[in-house]
């Protein structure tokens, strides 16, 4: 589903973000990417989303080289990928409902589909009673659940979560990880980056360990080892 073929990203002579990275991710996998800050985890995710282009090598999503896509096709690609960030990145002037509906609107879904799916997905993340709250009226954990709801509402092939538990307390972290597991069990591929040892060790899924822009370990049932 995702294939990195000898991908390097060099920002300057002394700044190598990715160094000859190659790996593949199959459908329905749950892959965690770990590493120190600056190891290249976020750059890796940006490559999948075509937010950044590799200096050399190729990134493939469903056999399409994402770095050769046109602007319009990049939008289509992004609609197939749900994204969750550490800082939530919700639209501040939209309610929880509207934030999720927006992702459906841009994907070209009808008003009827939006009216049916948004409440459903809000129920799924246990926020059915807060659909009309603005992000500023929600706690960190609730905001992250709205972000997850937005990421899953279009039933994407892949969910990318960049340190989604970084700003959350242990209980919210647990809840968020449980949601991701549930989503993965339903068949969605998940790529997660995190610094949280507990999360990785409890998941017991595939772990890619990065260091100085290289993948130094790829364990099928890995643990958090740096």
């Amino acid at each position: 589903m995702i294939h990195f073929d000898k991908v390097s990203k060099i920002y300057g002579a002394n700044s190598v973000a990715l160094d000859d990275v190659s790996f593949s991710i199959s459908p329905k996998e749950f892959v965690s990417v770990v590493g120190h800050s600056g190891a290249g985890k976020t750059t890796l995710l940006k490559m999948i989303l075509a937010e950044d282009r590799p200096t050399s090598g190729g990134v493939f999503f469903h056999s399409a080289n994402v770095n050769k896509l046109r602007r319009k096709d990049i939008n289509t690609l992004r609609r197939k990928i749900g994204v969750v960030f550490q800082d939530f990145r919700l639209l501040p002037n939209k309610t929880a409902y509207e934030n999720i509906a927006f992702a459906m609107e841009v994907a070209g879904r009808t008003d009827e589909e939006i009216a049916a799916d948004v409440p459903h997905v809000l129920q799924l993340v246990d926020l059915g009673n807060k659909s009309h709250n603005f992000p500023s009226q929600l706690s960190g954990g609730e905001r992250q659940r709205v972000a997850i709801a937005r990421a899953i509402v279009n039933q994407p092939d892949l969910i990318i979560a960049d340190e989604p538990t970084g700003n959350l307390d242990p209980i919210s972290t647990y809840e968020v990880v449980q949601i991701f597991k549930k989503i993965n069990d339903l068949g969605t591929t998940i790529v997660l980056t995190t610094h949280n040892k507990g999360v990785i060790d409890n998941l017991g899924r595939r772990v890619l360990t990065m260091e100085r822009g290289r993948v130094i370990r790829d364990d099928q049932e890995g643990r958090y080892v740096l």
Binding site: N75, R78, R79, F102, V106
Partner: peptide, 14 residues
């Protein structure tokens, strides 16, 4: 906000 819209795949017109 605009960068978030782009990340969820919103077209320029949207």
């Amino acid at each position: 906000e605009i960068s978030v819209m782009r990340l969820v795949g919103a077209s320029n017109i949207y």
